[in-house]
């Protein structure tokens, strides 16, 4: 029985399935009325700025057709910028302008587009072309992130980002997402980007996953993806952990980027983070989440709460790859229910 054996093996690994994620985490920890905070990138950004968390600088917002005229004045001071729908999904509708050329704009992929085309694009976003459910949307114009040099060798175009899943503010698993030729410069796993696991304790990359398989090299640059030290890893962890206070959502995927000038920045939050991160890390999420839940229950009994730094320390202590490999008796056995 292939199914039964695989089922048992996955359960032993503590691999989380969609049903469990939805029932035990998303539905339990994420209150529906808080979703707009993460679904709308402008709201996320405003909250983050208010909380003093680093995000790409916002240049301007366009929310009506009439305001499209303001586009010129918004981008006038900048030569490069990003136009994105506030409620877009899967990286759709994002236009990255790298440069200007003779009164026109040049995208990162080198395509030259006219001013009219940008205006049409903005109008499409406003009409809800890229938003979930086709609702009217707003346009966000913001700072273009320049990826850190470190990713040059293991990335193809686009901006690699780092996804950290946090449960009640405790980072439980992290993954570096590298665009490939197939993903068209987008850092979305189901579009063909690579996911590379990250050791939460050190920020060293682990093996990668590509289209549900485990891989070692980037398919376009053929450089090994394993063993790369991400700079300022503690900065990433602290940013991710602080997103709990920012959003109020208990189970989120935090997408961060590493800008070569500004360091770690928060791009967006996701209330239903994908599960492929488990393949990238070669570890199940359930076991880690149970550990955090046990810890929280103990804290609650003691009547304590932990600060962002304490939470990061907890995660780094328990979810490091090296530590994880050793059998540790401090971990309570999972599966309470």
């Amino acid at each position: 029985m292939f199914f039964w054996k695989t089922w048992k093996a996955l359960q032993a690994q503590g691999v989380m399935g969609i049903n469990r994620r939805n029932a035990d985490y998303v539905l339990k920890y994420n209150k529906r009325h808080l979703y707009p905070v993460v679904d709308d990138k402008i709201l996320t950004k405003e909250r983050a700025i208010a909380a003093g968390i680093n995000v790409p600088e916002m240049y301007g917002i366009i929310d009506t057709e009439k305001d499209i005229d303001k586009f010129d004045s918004i981008v006038a001071p900048y030569s490069d910028f990003v136009v994105k729908p506030a409620q877009g999904a899967g990286g759709d509708g994002i236009l990255v302008i790298a440069d200007r050329y003779e009164g026109r704009y040049r995208t990162v992929s080198g395509k030259i587009i006219s001013h009219e085309e940008i205006e049409h694009h903005i109008s499409s976003i406003l009409s809800g072309l890229y938003s979930l459910g086709g609702h009217r949307d707003r346009v966000l114009i913001e700072y273009r992130v320049t990826p850190d040099e470190i990713f040059k060798s293991i990335s193809y175009e686009g901006v690699p980002d780092i996804r950290i899943i946090c449960l009640m503010g405790y980072p439980v698993m992290g993954m570096l997402r590298l665009p490939t030729r197939q993903s068209g410069g987008k850092a979305n796993l189901h579009q063909g980007a690579i996911g590379v696991g990250v050791d939460l304790a050190t920020g060293l990359t682990l093996k990668g996953t590509w289209l549900n398989n485990i891989i070692n090299k980037h398919p376009d640059t053929t450089n090994p993806v394993e063993g790369v030290q991400l700079p300022d890893w503690n900065g990433f962890m602290t940013l991710a952990a602080s997103c709990y206070e920012l959003s109020g959502l208990g189970y989120i995927g935090v997408d961060l980027v590493l800008d070569q000038d500004k360091g770690p920045l928060i791009l967006e939050l996701n209330a239903r983070p994908g599960l492929n991160i488990q393949i990238a890390n070669d570890t199940g999420l359930t076991a880690r989440c149970h550990l955090v839940e046990h810890h929280l229950a103990a804290l609650k009994k003691a009547g304590k709460t932990e600060t962002v730094d304490e939470r990061v320390a907890f995660s780094q202590l328990h979810f490091g790859a090296q530590l994880n490999a050793e059998p540790s008796d401090t971990q309570p056995s999972p599966e309470p229910a």
């Binding site: 996955l10 029932a23 070669d282 199940g284």
Partner: peptide, 20 residues
Amino acid sequence: RYRGYRLTELVRFKALSKQA
């Protein structure tokens, strides 16, 4: 309230069951 795996997930996460 079902939290078990979906059958297709068994295929999707097959890579994770290998090294067990």
